[in-house]
Design a protein around this nucleic acid. Structure first.
Lengths: 212, 212
DNA sequence: AAATATATTTACATTTATTAACAAATACGC
DNA sequence: GCGTATTTGTTAATAAATGTAAATATATTT
């Protein structure tokens, strides 16, 4: 029977992937947990234990092979499965996300962008022609994307999510200020940029008070 | 002596603030930890314990007064201190963040946007005229913002951060794919949108395997 | 080829975080 | 106004994550 991996570990995986990818792109061949721990500012022990949840990728006396470790983490994250995504909302946020995120290199494919505003339908975003939201049903039924990225205004979020869920989409990434509630059998990742801003604010004020 | 509040609790604060604000804006006057726990999908016990790190804001037999609790959390987060921020990088990400984030209503003030590209200097973003990065020194010395939001390409991140640090800025929010390392006496919040995407991917593939 | 240094694994102890339980305090109906 | 139902703050119990140390396997050096 497989042991269930804890949420904390899963949350750290993308960070490992980023750092390992960075090493890989810089031509580093091998890395020890100790050296990686120094770079990532975590304990070596945690790195070893985290990675060991998924298998023994390292070799004693040698460390971890960067290329191999990178591809293993990619596999764990599901980046080798060719998942596809549609995006709904071609406003500022949608445009930015589509432009900044290197979908292909992360193992995802963005296959369609939709919006309901006539002024953006037909415009180009990174080579994608924005399609009419009215046509999303046919598109999803034909291409069966696994995930949807919601960059719509908050009032529209819930209804769009319900539409897409009815069409069979099982995973959502939500950027609107509203928190999209976990629906039955559906995976939701809410992204709140302002949360980071507030955490930063907390830390500043904590520091000010510390020197009081 | 004051007890140090754990990072887990601090990380949850913005979420409490969002939910309480939502209640407040919907005219709800009071809320019990039980009802809030139902809405937020956490245990009531955790809510009470988290809030109690900062003081007893509730009343037995009554619950929490929404307006009061909201203002208390705002205070804890430092949202009442009038912190100001400059943004460097007026590309897609900068534009989106400046447009989407309701700075004023969150208690922050964005006081200046900078870029070094002649094609964007002088353009308008939400009423802010983008200024030349070459002039940021004078601006920071004059206005003394507490934080900087970095929405520059990853190659520029480190050098911009060092410039601003030398000018006395103590807190950074970094949006570039590079992870900005914690510098001496400086607070850093890295935001990585692709991490969320990878977590989503992990959960999808985990689910697929579960049904295997 | 043996000895030594390196680095992962595994097991265990410690610390931290979460949930549960309960006594004290308040509100609200009758 | 009195008694009952709520609901918090707090303490105790449970669960989880982290760090430490010992054991094992691999590389490297002599």
């Amino acid at each position: 029977m497989e042991k269930k991996v804890s949420g904390s570990v899963v949350n750290r995986l993308p960070r490992y992937y980023r750092h390992i990818t960075d090493l890989y792109e810089n031509g580093v061949e091998r890395i020890s947990s100790k050296e990686l721990s120094r770079r990532m500012n975590v304990t070596a022990s945690q790195i070893r234990q985290d990675l060991n949840c998924f298998g023994g990728f390292g070799q004693q006396g040698y460390g971890y092979n960067v290329e191999m470790l990178r591809s293993e983490i990619a596999k764990i994250l599901g980046l080798d499965r060719g998942y596809t995504a549609v995006m709904v909302g071609a406003g500022h946020m949608g445009r930015t996300f589509a432009t900044n995120t290197k979908f292909e290199s992360r193992g995802f494919k963005l296959i369609g962008i939709f919006d309901s505003s006539p002024s953006v339908i037909g415009t180009d975003i990174q080579g994608h022609i924005v399609m009419d939201y009215a046509e999303i049903g046919d598109f999803v039924r034909e291409h069966k994307p696994e995930m949807a990225i919601l960059t719509v205004p908050k009032d529209a979020t819930k209804s769009v999510a319900e539409d897409l869920r009815a069409l069979g989409i099982k995973a959502f990434m939500n950027f609107s200020y509203t928190e999209l509630r976990e629906m039955e059998g559906v995976i939701v990742e809410n992204v709140h940029l302002s949360d980071s801003l507030m955490r930063l604010s907390y830390k500043i004020s904590e520091k000010e008070d510390g020197g009081r």
